[in-house]
Nucleic acid binder design. Structure first.
Lengths: 189, 189
DNA sequence: CTAGTGTCTGGACACCTGTCCAGCCAATGG
DNA sequence: CCATTGGCTGGACAGGTGTCCAGACACTAG
């Protein structure tokens, strides 16, 4: 295999990828998004720059991967049938909102990174969007109105964006989304 | 005045700024966002790179300015009291959605540019957000529920984002926002 | 033990970015 | 008519980005 392909982790190369991801988090905490450089991350992970680039094509790819891993690590939505739909949706939204809430640097970086044009990032973005949608649908139940699902997805995207831009905190984000869910679900139920 | 200040257009320097803005549009049409460079725009506008930089600190600033000018050029919302609230909101949303709809390059570029960290862009972003909100409020009327206004703003931000990312076209965007507005306004009226 | 294979390294590369500054030029005011 | 002044020029600058490659290295198989 001449080309590293950057996708299927060979197994023991996963270690290198893990090291890079860890180093990204450390670097973000230490120097923030602006100070983040593929080369810096590589150095911190004791890896040559060229090697890092063979796994991650850009700093945004690194950060997006961090976010994706956190999201993927979330446990599956538990469908607590006793609570109301709104309660479940609230819980899911809160969970998503707080993924990066207590690490401001990471939060801001994620927002920016996920929007990058880089095709590697685009792949992750699609995955992230799908995961968001999946969790929303799980919370809403099978009988959810498609229009409500779409509206919630849009609002969530908008809210994450605005939080990332600093218009409000990620904690407030959760409250805002609660409000949106309340209005939307109050509508047809 | 030693520092150009980049803000108040002296009057006859506005011509240079205009030339740069025009050149940005032309350059976008010709070479797309990737090909866009402050230096390229400067060349096209027959201006030295250093001069261009004295007015616009980054390519994103250029593009954001283009978007802002379009938005600012929109006529004020006419409050047609005969139509329903939903009709008015729909009209406003459609107007905003279609600002850049027929120029794909510009649309994609705007989305990316407006999200940039550049402080000059941030200023414009705030203005743009305010203008969006203002138009929504005007369409909704004074008695609008604040929660609904916030929800619409979030959804609009999310929709513009997703359209910019290529998940759907700006024309579809208008339809999606209609749907959201329908659900939200159907709720408490 | 040795050959083979695939990965990692370090350094060079071309290109882009935003900033700086000495000198030029055109308009204004005396 | 000159002197002054402020903006513009063009070219150089230090940094950063992503790519490339020849050679070093470490496993694995024979």
């Amino acid at each position: 295999m001449t080309e590293p392909t950057r996708r299927d982790l060979g197994g023991r190369q996963a270690d290198r990828v893990d090291a890079l991801v860890e180093a990204t988090i450390a670097e973000l905490r230490a120097n923030g998004y602006d100070g983040l450089t593929v080369r810096n991350v590589a150095r911190r992970a004791n890896v040559a720059a060229a090697t890092a680039y063979s796994y991650f094509g850009s700093k945004d790819h690194l950060v997006a991967e961090v976010f994706w891993r956190r999201l993927a690590a979330l446990p599956t939505v538990s469908i607590d049938r006793r609570g109301s739909t709104l309660t479940r949706v609230s819980a899911v939204l809160r969970e998503l909102a707080l993924l990066v809430a207590n690490e401001p640097e990471l939060a801001a970086a994620s927002t920016t990174a996920i929007l990058a044009a880089d095709p590697d990032v685009q792949r992750l973005r699609d995955q992230i969007g799908a995961a968001f949608n999946e969790r929303l649908v799980a919370a809403l139940g099978d009988d959810a109105e498609p229009a409500v699902v779409r509206a919630l997805n849009l609002a969530l995207a908008g809210a994450l964006l605005q939080a990332g831009m600093g218009y409000f905190s990620y904690t407030q984000l959760a409250d805002r989304m609660d409000e949106v869910a309340g209005v939307l679900l109050g509508a047809n139920r």
